[in-house]
Write a protein that binds this DNA or RNA. Structure first.
Lengths: 115, 115
DNA sequence: AGGCATAATGCGTTAAGCGTCATACAGTAC
DNA sequence: GTACTGTATGACGCTTAACGCATTATGCCT
């Protein structure tokens, strides 16, 4: 028999940490950086600036947040900093949510069609 | 013609939708409501107010956001609104992130202990 | 050393969202 | 109908974080 996962309620601290993690993914800029790094492999900051169109300071700050959370790693190459995705979890989460969004839209479409 | 090289990159619209979903989970209050509903099953607003300690208006607003996103459903019972979790995805996401947080802390612990 | 590139950090402005108070709305009982 | 309960919403202050500009730090040259 499978336990009904009678998970006790999460502690306030865990709630804060979970929400803090999700908050990292709640900005399109940061998500875009993560997707760009996953797509293009390791990239330096200048490439990410060009790919996103944001200012240098903004990109640097967002990368800093992602790095402190362990989602990206960076190493020097001369004067450049090369960033790369350090955790595949984000990609899994995005895929799950994307499937969910798609299913929800399909359901709404069926309702409009009166099925 | 649109370059096919960026085919695997998510569109700006998708980025906004993904980040919007994660934003829902970026507030401890909403996360707490979802966990409470998962733990206690269907609950009315008054019970959720008592469980969280927030004001009635605040809880009502957060429930409204969760409902519009399809994460919770509600039905009337007299004057009361009974809310319930409508999508198991949030629970899966939280479990994934929680495992990740745990692994990261264990790793940091090992580093402090000198491997 | 100085000069040049790349990236990080103070600082200010601005927008978005939380959270509460007061009010309006929906439903029931009388 | 009025009175009462339970919930949603408008208005508002406040905190936080995005975003850019200017500056500073860091590392390669010659």
């Amino acid at each position: 028999m499978i336990a009904p996962a009678s998970a006790s309620l999460p502690s306030p601290q865990l709630l804060v940490e979970l929400s803090g993690f999700f908050r990292l993914l709640s900005e399109p800029t940061r998500l875009q950086l993560l997707c760009q790094l996953k797509h293009g492999g390791a990239m330096d900051v200048a490439s990410l600036i060009e790919a996103t169109g944001f200012s240098q300071s903004h990109i640097s700050r967002q990368l800093g947040q992602l790095q402190r959370a362990g989602l990206v790693s960076c190493e020097r190459d001369g004067t450049r900093q090369i960033y790369a995705v350090a955790d595949p979890l984000v990609d899994d989460l995005c895929n799950l949510v994307q499937m969910r969004l798609k299913q929800r839209l399909e359901q709404q479409l069926r309702q409009l069609q009166g099925v």
